[in-house]
């Protein structure tokens, strides 16, 4: 009881909870679930863009894309490390991902059909991720907050490279401009879904806000993203595919159309365009890498044996 009181005092004072502090089981479970899901998203998120590395149109774009995909791997590793401070096991988390027992962001279950998708992912998908992640830099669990600070610093490069790529294509031929518009048409609604179900249906939000893991509701963050993105779309010269999207002076925000939540739940439930492919690829990469992990461990064991003999 005294421990619980101390925990609540730390959270209420906006101090950080650190790994060896006492914490309620539910807090630990919620964090492990959220951080693992976040880490998995970074790792699976390497695939849609990795798809275009070998076909990037120039060496410059290829180098940028490689660096970006490498960052996503890094973000996944920061986050897995944060989950481990809560007692989660790295191998176990990977196993849960490839066995479909833990989720990742549904946005990565959509295919990248053209190179414009690389730009639109940077602009919209990473843009939405930033809106989600900036408040997490102040989340109540210390290691998660610190990981998010690193991630957010790097995401800004991701978003800007995407927008610049699109600006370049919009200055190109009509075919290139059409390619950008079609890509925006495909990614806009899934990007809005990245913020999760509406507040009225979000089961975890209330408790997470009480624990100060989350600081804003899904709908608040979604609105913020829409308001930020509209002027960027205008500047770019693309149309966001929503006839109901308009400024509401009374609210001081943009109104926007109804999200197709049936599609959202269908993709979350495993039946999106690329769910099976993403998991199969992750599983294969993990299994194909087994011999490398074993060889490195064997070499380390042999070397430490030699040192002990000498």
């Amino acid at each position: 009881m005294e421990l619980e009181h101390e925990f609540e005092r730390v959270v209420a004072a906006d101090h950080r909870v650190e790994p060896r502090d006492w914490m309620p089981d539910g807090y630990r479970r919620t964090l492990i679930r959220q951080i693992a899901q976040h880490a998995h998203s970074e790792i699976i998120g390497m695939q849609p863009e990795g798809n275009w590395i070998s076909r990037a149109p120039s060496l410059r774009r290829k180098a940028i894309l490689l660096a970006k995909v490498q960052d996503e791997a890094g973000h996944g590793l920061y986050l897995y490390a944060a989950a481990e401070t809560l007692g989660a096991d790295r191998e176990d988390l990977t196993a849960k991902l490839v066995e479909g027992r833990q989720k990742y962001s549904s946005i990565f279950n959509y295919p990248t059909l053209t190179f414009a998708d690389v730009g639109v992912i940077g602009w919209l998908v990473d843009g939405a991720a930033i809106v989600n992640q900036v408040p997490l830099c102040r989340t109540s669990y210390g290691p998660y907050a610190r990981a998010m600070i690193r991630v957010c610093k790097e995401e800004s490069f991701h978003q800007r490279q995407g927008y610049e790529l699109l600006l370049t294509m919009m200055r190109g031929t009509q075919a290139q401009r059409d390619m950008v518009q079609r890509s925006v048409d495909r990614w806009w609604w899934p990007s809005l879904m990245m913020f999760g179900p509406p507040d009225t249906e979000s089961t975890n939000t209330e408790q997470s806000m009480k624990w100060r893991i989350k600081r804003h509701t899904n709908d608040e963050l979604r609105q913020k993203f829409v308001d930020m993105t509209v002027p960027q779309a205008e500047k770019l010269g693309v149309t966001l595919p929503d006839p109901d999207l308009r400024w509401n002076a009374e609210r001081g925000h943009h109104d926007f159309g109804e999200i197709d939540w049936a599609e959202f739940w269908q993709v979350v439930g495993g039946d999106g365009p690329c769910n099976a492919q993403r998991i199969a690829h992750r599983r294969k990469a993990h299994e194909d890498g087994a011999w490398v992990r074993e060889a490195a461990a064997a070499y380390a064991a042999k070397k430490s044996g030699e040192e002990q003999v000498a």
Partner: peptide, 20 residues
Amino acid sequence: MTERASEPAAGRGPRSSWPL
């Protein structure tokens, strides 16, 4: 800081072959 040192090895199950 991760501050895992001298904890019971909760984060290191049998499948994690590489040390932290």
